[in-house]
Design a protein around this nucleic acid. Structure first.
Lengths: 205, 205
DNA sequence: CGAATTCTTGACTGTTTGATAAAACTCTAA
DNA sequence: TTAGAGTTTTATCAAACAGTCAAGAATTCG
């Protein structure tokens, strides 16, 4: 069976479609998104879109597969041989940068998990779980060596994910509360400064 | 115009419907939920359900209105005259308890905010914003008095919301990573212990 | 009781939506 | 240049969906 080569038009259109799909899926979730909306965003007719992805679910799965690696990359780079505290600070900042630079991706995952991850639960078990297990060991090692405060490493990871992704997933709420005066960039800097303090020193005076 | 009194059957059925609606809306979001699903969960026919709530959106709005107060109550109780650190610890624990005891409510809000809060943005501005402004002042006062570490009070509130609600909203992911051995109760205790440490001392050894 | 009111249901309507078929058009490589 | 592969469109379908209607069943209350 020969590997199918993709034409120029195929590559261009699949790209356009996946970008449009990300836009729509991340804003409305899988069931809330319609093929018509995605086709509109991609600037093509619905049957034409369905020529490239025969079913709605195919687009969704293609998106997820393409994004998961990017999404897990910062955690993968958490390095056992690095200096623990700076290493963690760097991880937190990178996650925060991703929330700023890829909010659609963040919301896509959030939507999926929120609704019970029916389409990617298996992927979480095969990709996410082992990675977290591995990095939890790294963190546990640092704790044993007295390099960082001793806490449950998995819950530590949860708190990094939740605090950073909050700025992408709950952006509307964040904007309502912080007001629009401060731009997105200003909000980002404030958040980075705050999280740095929180994770280093906590709230004790 | 006389105030309409509600019959026994009306009260019972509206209750049943709103509970079913919470179940379905929180699992699928507004657009993903169907009236048929809600009617099934409530154990009644669709036309019967629509006799009580004429449109899908009416159920949703009734739910939101009913839940918002409950949801904001812990923050309302944050007391300026109390002892700062214990007061915050108490708030964190109460939010975590709500994530454990009312995960559907948490997911309902999460779904709504995630999708841009089209239906409750006004409510956030009129109810949530002033409350947060007020409590941010309280926190700022504590910081000025040197009772707690000086950080951005609004971002502090964000981090409490995100870390606690994470356990309700991303429950599937949490379960995949922590494994099912540990029950929900055990997970809760671990989370409470971790968050206590994080917010008090941070990660510095 | 019995009549007024409230509640419930089956059948139905118009619309949206995911998906298909086939014809028409465009591109590419020999 | 032209045959064939690849692409786009028009027309269409069946299922899912929000919401309606009128008639029948149950409940309430004088």
């Amino acid at each position: 069976m020969e590997t199918q080569r993709k034409t120029r038009i195929q590559m261009e259109n699949e790209e356009r479609i996946l970008d449009a799909a990300l836009e729509v899926f991340s804003a409305h979730g899988f069931r809330g998104a319609t093929i018509d909306q995605i086709a509109d965003h991609a600037g093509m007719s619905k049957p034409n879109l369905l020529y490239y992805f025969r079913r709605k679910q195919d687009m969704y799965e293609a998106l997820i597969a393409r994004l998961l690696d990017t999404w897990l990359e910062p955690l993968k780079e958490l390095d056992a041989v690095g200096d623990p505290l700076p290493e963690l600070q760097c991880y937190i900042r990178r996650k925060l940068e991703m929330a700023r630079d890829f909010p659609r991706e963040s919301r896509l995952f959030a939507n999926e998990i929120l609704q019970g991850a029916p389409r990617i639960k298996r992927l979480l078990e095969s990709e996410l779980k082992p990675l977290v297990d591995e990095k939890a060991e790294v963190l546990a090692g640092w704790m044993k060596d007295g390099k960082i405060n001793t806490v449950d490493p998995r819950h530590l990871i949860f708190s990094i994910w939740s605090t950073t992704q909050h700025y992408a997933d709950f952006d509307v709420q964040v904007q309502v509360i912080l007001g629009p005066d401060l731009g997105a960039e200003g909000r980002f800097e404030d958040a980075a400064r705050y999280l740095d303090k929180l994770f280093l020193d906590g709230l004790k005076p």
